[in-house]
Design a protein around this nucleic acid. Structure first.
Lengths: 271, 271
DNA sequence: ACTTCAATGGAATGTTTATTCCATTTCATG
DNA sequence: CATGAAATGGAATAAACATTCCATTGAAGT
C-alpha cells in the first residue's frame, strides 16, 4: 500500500499514478481534482462532488483510493499549503499601505503586489509549447543576439550576463557609439528581442532585418500580436501590471532568465 | 448601524474604527485579529478564541460587534480573499512542472515561484523606516549616480531609465570605454549602488570614495551587512531566492523602481 | 439469458463546529 | 456599601458536515 501523499506535489504524482484503469466516476473525480486542486482547501465534499458531477460518497471513495482516510485527511495537505504560501503576506501588504498613500512603503506595496500578480499571470497564461519552440530555435544558434532599448534594455542586459556566465556566445546590441551592430548578425545566429508598446523603431527594424534573412527571432513583448509577424518570428507575450506610469518587469525578467537557462541546458545536453 | 465590511480592507478600517472604548475581552479579540488576519480563513472559532485567549462566545460577540451575523459570515470575506488571491496559481505551477524535470516549462515554474517568494519576503522583511531615510537622502541630491556591474547592471540600467523618464538628473556608471566616471560625482550628489556577493571591486571602490567624501550612498544588496559601512551609507538588504546558479532579481527590481518613483514623487512635491 | 461482482447513489449516522442562552462575575454609580 | 448594568465563561443546542452503510444499478463473464 502506497503511503498517502504528504504534499501537493506528491498528490499530483499519485494522481498521475492511479489515473489509468479507473472506473467512470472515479475518473471524473481525478480529472476534476487535477483541474481544480486549489479549491480543495476551502470547499466541502459536497461542493467538490457537485463540481465533479458525482455523489459525495463517490468523492469520499476517491479520497480513500488516493490513500487518505477520508476527505478531511486529504484537505489538511492543501490547507497547510495555503497557509504556508501566504504566511502573513496579506497583512504585511496592508500594513505597508497603512503608512500613508504617498509613502515609499505604500509604493513598495503597490509594486510588490503588481509584480506578484504579473508572475501569477505569467504562470497561468504562458504557452508551454511556444516556450519549447523558442528554446529549440535558440538552442540551434551559433551566437545569440540581444536587442532591447529604453525600458527593455535591462532585460537584454540581464540576458547578456546570463549567457556570458554560461559561456554561450551572445552579443548585446546596446547602440553604444551609434555603431551599426546589425551587420554582425550572420546566418546560423538567432535574435532575442525585447520591446514594449510603443515599440522602439530601432528594435523593430532589427527584427525586420532578421525576418528578411530568415534568421530565427524570439520576441518578448507585452502584446499577443507582437511588433512584427513573420515565418521565423516566435512571439512570447507577457502581461505586465502597471503601477502608475511604471512597471517592475518582474514577469519579463523571469521569462527571460528562463529562456537563457533552458537554452544553456539544451546546449550542454546536446554536446 | 454600519454595514458589515465586505473586503479585507474594509475589515481593517472597521477594526480601527471600533478599536477604542472596547471592553477588555473584546480588545483582546481585536488585537489578535489585527495581528493574525490571515488565519481567519482556515481556523475555527475555537482555535481563534484560544489564540486570542478568550472564550469562543466572546469571539462570537466580537464578530457581531464588527457587523457580521456570526463567525461564518465573517469568515466568508477572508475565504473569498484567499481564493481570489491564488486563482489557480498553485495548480498551474504544478502543471508546468509536470511537463518534465528539464523542460523549459518546469524551469519557468521554478523561476516564477522563486520570484514570488522573493517578493513576499521583501514585503515581510523590508525596513520601512530605512526605506524612508533612503528616499529622503536621495531626494536631497542634485544628481543621482547609479553603480552596478555584472548581474547588478540591469538594475542600475533600469533605474537610469526611470530617472530619465521622470526628468531627474541621473548618471549610469557603466564602465564603457574604461573611462573614470567616478570624478563626476560632486558634493550634493548621491549614489545608488547595487551589488551582490561576491561584491565587485569597482563598485566597492566607488562606494568607498563616496563615503570618504561624505556623499550619501544607498546600497541595494543581498546581505544585511552590505559591502561597506559608513556614516553616509544606508544599506537596503534584499533576500533573493536562487534557482540553481541563477536568480531572477524580481525583488531587487521592485525595490529599485520603488526608490526611483518615491524619489521622483518627493522631488515634485518639494518644488 | 443468467450469474456475479464491482460500482454507484442516496439515505442514515456520528462528529465537528457554530451559535445561543443563562448563571455568574466584574465594574461603575449612587 | 449596595445596586444595577454590562461583561464574561461555560454549558446546552442547533447546524453543517464528513463518513458509513446498504439497496440498486450496470457491466463482464459463463
Amino acid at each position: 500500500m502506497t503511503a498517502k501523499p504528504q504534499s501537493v506535489e506528491d498528490f499530483h504524482a499519485r494522481l498521475h499514478e492511479v489515473s489509468e484503469g479507473l472506473p467512470k466516476r472515479m475518473r471524473q473525480c481525478a480529472d476534476y481534482l487535477a483541474a481544480n486542486t486549489d479549491r480543495v482547501a476551502l470547499s466541502t465534499v459536497a461542493e467538490l462532488a457537485t463540481g465533479a458531477g458525482v455523489a459525495p460518497s463517490a468523492m469520499m471513495r476517491f479520497c480513500q483510493i488516493m490513500g487518505y482516510s477520508g476527505y478531511s485527511d486529504m484537505q489538511q495537505i492543501f490547507r497547510a499549503a495555503v497557509s504556508s504560501g501566504l504566511p502573513d503576506y496579506a497583512s504585511r501588504i496592508s500594513a505597508l499601505r497603512d503608512r500613508g498613500a504617498d509613502s515609499p512603503s505604500a509604493l513598495l506595496a503597490e509594486f510588490v503586489d503588481a509584480g506578484r500578480g504579473s508572475l501569477e499571470t505569467l504562470a497561468n497564461k504562458v504557452d508551454a509549447a511556444a516556450l519549447d519552440q523558442a528554446v529549440a530555435a535558440l538552442a540551434g544558434a551559433e551566437m545569440i543576439h540581444l536587442a532591447g532599448l529604453r525600458r527593455a534594455f535591462p532585460v537584454s542586459a540581464y540576458l547578456a550576463y546570463a549567457f556570458e556566465k554560461m559561456g554561450h556566445p551572445a552579443m548585446l546590441h546596446d547602440g553604444v557609439g551609434a555603431l551599426q551592430q546589425a551587420a554582425s548578425i550572420r546566418i546560423g545566429d538567432a535574435l532575442i528581442a525585447t520591446t514594449f508598446t510603443p515599440y522602439s523603431d530601432e528594435t523593430v527594424a532589427l527584427i525586420q532585418t532578421c525576418v528578411d534573412r530568415d534568421i530565427p527571432v524570439v520576441v518578448l513583448t507585452d502584446s499577443p500580436l507582437g511588433p512584427v509577424q513573420g515565418a521565423s518570428v516566435l512571439t512570447l507575450p507577457v502581461a505586465e501590471a502597471d503601477v502608475g506610469a511604471f512597471r517592475a518587469l518582474s514577469a519579463t525578467h523571469c521569462l527571460a532568465i528562463t529562456l537563457a537557462v533552458a537554452v544553456g541546458a539544451a546546449k550542454s545536453r546536446a554536446s
